[in-house]
Write a protein that binds this DNA or RNA. Structure first.
Lengths: 179, 179
DNA sequence: CCTACCGATCGGTAGG
DNA sequence: CCTACCGATCGGTAGG
């Protein structure tokens, strides 16, 4: 077993991020990891099954950054925002968002995985904020902060412009700091 | 000539919005407008050529809404924001954003069209705001307001939740009103 | 993990 | 605006 499952998932993530679900081909994925296409089907039953794996890995990485498990909610929230923003700034696109837009009803398992991915983000962000404010308020702030970070990828993807993402981070953390 | 060019462009827009560039097929487009696939090539040289047309039509519609040409900048800006938000809320996705994410270097004309599309949005928004504030400030506010509107489509596309978009509108218009 | 292959569909064209 | 077709590529499988 020369190529690990994680290597394939990492390559699949790159591919989905760049080309979306429909634009990503199993042949391209095989080429990137140095396998024959048929060999991919030893580890994954089909293309759709890559989606949950890609998103789980991404979620785990995002929420494994230092500081996120801090008991201090301000520290934890800042770490989450910075972790998400760093990944998006680095890659210019969000895999999850690309899949959210690109996946249809013909791939229901993938669709559910995308929903779970963002639900998890929103829930974890809300949980942190809810330590310091009513849960209803926390839900709204989490949703809007995440939307703003995602929206800022427009300027990254199209114009290579990271300033909107930086302001999105500042705007998310400003109220937290002065709380 | 039973099927007009505009009908095809409208159908292509729906298709690109739903499935992205790679996921949209000329056969599907032909089926939607009731033509044979080959007949599409009478009006468009290839698939890529649909993209500029789709985006030009969308831009024109967005900026033809009443109020946008008002000499009062507050009226004009509110009309722009509401026009964009209404389209996104209605369709749950932004064609331009889907294409921004999905189009690669193999379709350079389409890529440029997407850039022009958003550049036009940003320029027109900035021009309106610059009537009342320094141009540098206007540029930043326009970029962030647009990013927020686009980001809010995440909640629309995934969870059918329009509240984030409503707040994006309120947040864009709040400072304008109290100016 | 490979070679070899399947039917289906892709964007696009020939020719009328 | 159509029928008929092109080569290329798609996701996936058989069989070893």
């Amino acid at each position: 077993m020369k190529v690990s499952k994680d290597e394939i998932i990492l390559a699949a993530r790159e591919l989905f991020r760049e080309k979306g679900y429909a634009g990503a081909s199993m042949q391209d994925l095989a080429d990137r990891v140095g396998l024959r296409k048929a060999s991919l089907y030893m580890r994954f039953p089909n293309k759709e099954a890559l989606v949950p794996e890609v998103l789980e890995m991404t979620l785990n990485t995002t929420f494994s950054q230092p500081g996120i498990s801090s008991p201090d909610w301000k520290t934890a929230y800042e770490a989450v925002i910075r972790s998400i923003a760093a990944a998006l700034t680095d890659r210019h696109r969000c895999v999850g968002f690309h899949l959210a837009y690109g996946i249809g009803d013909d791939t229901p398992l993938a669709k559910q995985a995308v929903r779970d991915f963002f639900r998890s983000h929103l829930d974890r962000m809300t949980d942190i904020l809810a330590r310091a404010m009513p849960r209803e308020t926390a839900t709204i702030i989490a949703a809007d902060d995440l939307a703003r970070l995602e929206g800022a990828t427009l300027h990254l993807a199209l114009f290579d412009d990271p300033t909107s993402m930086k302001r999105a981070v500042d705007l998310a953390l400003g109220p937290v700091r002065s709380h």
